[in-house]
């Protein structure tokens, strides 16, 4: 079975985000970029399926600027077999990304698609579900456990209040939550080996998808800052303030 996994190039999660002074967007100039953390978990899960003999090939796909090749090479160093970059310098909204991925899936015919549940830049949490709708596949979102058996996959999902388990008929789409696995680090020999793995570049035009804007970003602002309050000297003073000043107890 072929497993297709997607990775997104985003701002490194350790970098402090700054809003541009003209409020047009977040400032990404000279900022360290990295693979979206939820996508790292997706790559790890795909590679583990291959190591367990469940998957025969792991194909990794990214959509974005040419520089996203770096994240594809990282995924190849982590154990993916082959990369595809759908290259575009335009702003690709979730629905467009899903349409492009649906075309890639049409060509590749994977049995399982593993994606991060959301990217830490736009925090949309949409693409996997949209791709599932467009391909008519079932979806196991926010996965904390994935078990493949025969033509079914059982996915344990992190839902409000606990865990839910669903069984999906493959081909299916899984989106990863934080506790699915602990991604490995790439070893130096594997980083060197990854440079020789195949990486193919396509464009939205090649795939026959028109890039369309469904939304318009009007402005981006820093969030309202909360002011620090006071330090109290004792539990007694705290209780007094909560009762008589804040009046919340």
């Amino acid at each position: 079975m072929k497993v297709l996994v997607t990775v997104k190039r985003v701002i490194d999660y350790n970098v402090k985000v700054r809003v541009k002074s003209d409020n047009s967007d977040v400032d990404l100039n000279n900022v360290k970029m990295a693979m979206n953390p939820f996508c790292e978990i997706a790559v790890e899960e795909a590679v583990r399926l291959k190591e367990a003999g469940v998957a025969s090939e792991v194909v990794v796909v990214s959509l974005g600027p040419q520089a996203a090749q770096e994240q594809l090479r990282t995924a190849l160093a982590l154990g993916a077999d082959r990369g595809i970059l759908v290259q575009s310098d335009e702003n690709l909204e979730s629905l467009t990304v899903a349409k492009l991925l649906a075309k890639v899936i049409g060509e590749e015919q994977p049995g399982l698609v593993i994606m991060g549940k959301q990217a830490i830049d736009t925090d949309n949490n949409q693409t996997g579900q949209m791709l599932a709708a467009l391909t008519g596949m079932p979806q196991g979102t926010f996965a904390s456990e994935v078990k493949v058996s025969g033509d079914k996959v059982q996915v344990t999902r992190e839902v409000d209040g606990g865990l839910q388990t669903v069984e999906l008929t493959m081909p299916a789409i899984v989106t990863t939550d934080l506790r699915l696995n602990e991604p490995r680090y790439a070893s130096l020999p594997n980083i060197m080996k990854a440079k020789r793995k195949p990486l193919e570049t396509k464009t939205p035009e090649d795939l026959g998808v028109a890039v369309k804007a469904h939304t318009q970003l009007l402005k981006v602002e820093p969030p309202a800052q909360r002011q620090a309050g006071i330090k109290v000297a004792s539990v007694e003073e705290l209780v007094d303030k909560l009762k008589n000043e804040a009046k919340v107890i």
């Binding site: 925090d123 469904h214 939304t215 009007l218 981006v220 969030p223």
Partner: peptide, 16 residues
């Protein structure tokens, strides 16, 4: 809506 883990707030117009 918040983006970047709430470190920025985006004002977005839907064209749909």
């Amino acid at each position: 809506r918040p983006i970047y883990a709430g470190n920025a707030i985006a004002t977005v117009k839907s064209l749909d």
